[in-house]
Simulated assay, not measured.
Amino acid sequence: MSWPEGRDPLEQLTLLGADWLRVLRADPGLSARFLPADWPAARSAAVYRRCFDALLLAGQRRLDRELAPAVPG
């Protein structure tokens, strides 16, 4: 999975994390045996992980640039 060019990866990681927390808060946290067979927890986690992995390297690079000491010019 690739991420759209021109989008700020740190912003996207932050939004992804906020959305994921919302999903986790809505999940009842019950054992799988008490949930319907089509409960989307595993699929949701897989989508989150793919998106996170797609953004991680670009996000790390962006953060490194932001935190790098200014080079005197």
Rank of each mutant, 00 (worst) to 15 (best):
M1L: 13
M1E: 11
M1P: 02
S2G: 02
W3N: 00
P4H: 02
G6I: 13
R7A: 13
D8E: 04
L10P: 12
E11W: 07
E11T: 15
Q12P: 04
L13N: 15
L13D: 05
L15S: 05
L16V: 06
G17F: 04
G17C: 01
L21M: 06
L21F: 02
R22H: 11
R22N: 05
R22E: 11
V23F: 11
V23N: 00
R25Y: 07
D27H: 05
D27I: 08
P28Q: 04
L30H: 11
A32N: 14
A32K: 09
A32L: 14
R33E: 06
F34Y: 15
A37M: 09
A42L: 13
R43M: 10
R43P: 01
R43V: 05
R43K: 02
A45F: 10
A46E: 14
A46V: 03
Y48L: 09
R50Q: 12
R50C: 01
C51S: 13
F52C: 13
F52D: 07
F52G: 04
D53E: 12
A54N: 03
A54F: 00
A54M: 00
L55T: 07
L56S: 13
L57H: 10
L57V: 15
L57M: 05
Q60G: 00
R62E: 08
R62C: 07
D64A: 15
R65T: 12
E66F: 10
L67T: 07
A68G: 03
A70Q: 02
P72S: 15
P72Y: 10
P72G: 05
G73F: 10
G73K: 05
G73M: 06
